[in-house]
Simulated scan of single mutants.
Amino acid sequence: MNIRLQLFELEDQRWFPHVIRQGMLDFLRFMISKLGAYEATLPLLQELLTKTKQTHITDLCSGAGGGIETIQKGLSQRMGQTIHVTLSDLYPNISTYQYLQTQSGGTIDFIPEPIDATAVPETITGVRTIFSSFHHFPPTIAQRILQDAADKRAAIGIFEGAQKSWVEMILLWLAFPIVIVLVTPFIRPFKLSRLFFTYIIPLIPIGIIWDGTVSLLRIYTPTHLQQMLQTIKAPNYTWQTGRVGNKPGKHVIYLIGYPN
């Protein structure tokens, strides 16, 4: 699937109910964590941290922090030291971030104030990451995110958990409605609103299927990313992009950049 369509996702709309958006993001976080969707990115992140001599990740556009627990644990184990992660977002999901902070014993923390990925404050340090969110941005804004990292000499890793294939699209339409119904009671932190808007008024499942479909169509392929990089002014800065992962549900498209 080489096409990219800039359609709209419900969770991006300001008018979209916050409770539905958070229910959708909580499901995404649960599935990414349980499937280990970003397992294949660990060697890339380890190399990026090692090259930049960092032990701290600042995650941008964190949403509900999908998969960050397993990533933090996996990186810490691989590197033999504790890797700290700070979550941030333009619309911070405070309750979920507090839950992740408690669950991780403080190795995951968060910034409660809104953080714009196109203009990250100089005071915020660490290797920048964006998981499952870069596709939300049209090319002009995506370029600004990359340019901001390059201008501030910050390393950045962008990861999309998908192969971008029609098979994934068909599985989303046929299998996900069943999966959503089965796993929702096990998502934590527990919320009655999540049950209500899944089983009584199914706005969360409808939103997940719609946004999942649009997400696959919006994801940038490595070719798209290479074309975007040609617009970035980044002297003495190295970029890498490609695909990793060869297991079902564990394919990842990535873009990594770091100062020389």
Score class of each variant (00 low, 15 high):
residue 3 I to Q: 15
residue 3 I to L: 14
residue 5 L to I: 12
residue 5 L to F: 11
residue 5 L to N: 13
residue 6 Q to N: 15
residue 6 Q to D: 15
residue 7 L to K: 12
residue 8 F to H: 15
residue 10 L to R: 06
residue 10 L to H: 06
residue 10 L to D: 08
residue 11 E to K: 15
residue 12 D to G: 01
residue 14 R to G: 08
residue 19 V to L: 08
residue 23 G to W: 01
residue 29 R to P: 00
residue 29 R to L: 01
residue 31 M to H: 15
residue 35 L to M: 12
residue 38 Y to V: 04
residue 38 Y to A: 10
residue 38 Y to N: 07
residue 39 E to Q: 10
residue 42 L to N: 01
residue 43 P to W: 01
residue 45 L to C: 09
residue 46 Q to W: 00
residue 48 L to E: 14
residue 49 L to S: 09
residue 51 K to E: 15
residue 54 Q to T: 07
residue 55 T to F: 01
residue 56 H to L: 03
residue 57 I to R: 11
residue 58 T to K: 07
residue 59 D to I: 01
residue 62 S to W: 02
residue 63 G to P: 00
residue 67 G to A: 08
residue 67 G to W: 11
residue 68 I to Q: 09
residue 71 I to K: 05
residue 71 I to L: 14
residue 72 Q to F: 10
residue 72 Q to M: 05
residue 73 K to C: 15
residue 74 G to Q: 08
residue 79 M to R: 01
residue 79 M to T: 02
residue 79 M to A: 04
residue 80 G to T: 01
residue 83 I to N: 06
residue 84 H to E: 14
residue 84 H to P: 02
residue 92 P to M: 00
residue 94 I to V: 07
residue 94 I to R: 13
residue 97 Y to D: 11
residue 99 Y to M: 02
residue 100 L to Y: 08
residue 104 S to F: 03
residue 104 S to E: 02
residue 107 T to P: 00
residue 108 I to T: 00
residue 110 F to G: 05
residue 110 F to M: 01
residue 116 D to T: 03
residue 116 D to A: 08
residue 116 D to R: 07
residue 117 A to P: 04
residue 118 T to C: 14
residue 118 T to Y: 07
residue 118 T to E: 13
residue 118 T to Q: 12
residue 119 A to H: 12
residue 119 A to Y: 06
residue 119 A to W: 03
residue 120 V to A: 07
residue 120 V to E: 09
residue 120 V to N: 06
residue 120 V to K: 09
residue 128 R to L: 13
residue 128 R to P: 05
residue 130 I to P: 10
residue 132 S to Q: 11
residue 136 H to W: 04
residue 138 P to A: 06
residue 139 P to A: 10
residue 139 P to D: 13
residue 140 T to S: 13
residue 141 I to M: 11
residue 143 Q to L: 04
residue 146 L to D: 08
residue 147 Q to L: 04
residue 148 D to N: 13
residue 149 A to P: 13
residue 154 A to I: 00
residue 155 A to F: 04
residue 159 F to E: 04
residue 160 E to T: 05
residue 165 S to M: 15
residue 173 W to G: 10
residue 173 W to E: 15
residue 173 W to A: 13
residue 174 L to H: 15
residue 177 P to D: 09
residue 178 I to W: 11
residue 180 I to D: 05
residue 184 T to A: 10
residue 184 T to V: 08
residue 186 F to L: 06
residue 186 F to C: 01
residue 190 F to G: 02
residue 196 F to N: 11
residue 198 T to M: 00
residue 199 Y to I: 00
residue 199 Y to F: 06
residue 200 I to D: 00
residue 202 P to E: 01
residue 204 I to R: 03
residue 205 P to I: 00
residue 206 I to R: 12
residue 207 G to N: 04
residue 209 I to W: 10
residue 210 W to Q: 11
residue 210 W to H: 12
residue 211 D to A: 02
residue 214 V to A: 13
residue 214 V to E: 13
residue 215 S to D: 12
residue 217 L to E: 14
residue 217 L to W: 13
residue 217 L to N: 13
residue 220 Y to L: 01
residue 224 H to Q: 10
residue 225 L to I: 09
residue 229 L to R: 09
residue 230 Q to L: 13
residue 234 A to L: 07
residue 235 P to W: 02
residue 238 T to P: 14
residue 238 T to Q: 15
residue 239 W to V: 06
residue 241 T to Y: 02
residue 244 V to F: 04
residue 250 K to P: 05
residue 252 V to K: 04
residue 253 I to R: 04
residue 255 L to R: 03
residue 257 G to Y: 03
residue 257 G to S: 05
residue 257 G to K: 03
residue 260 N to I: 12
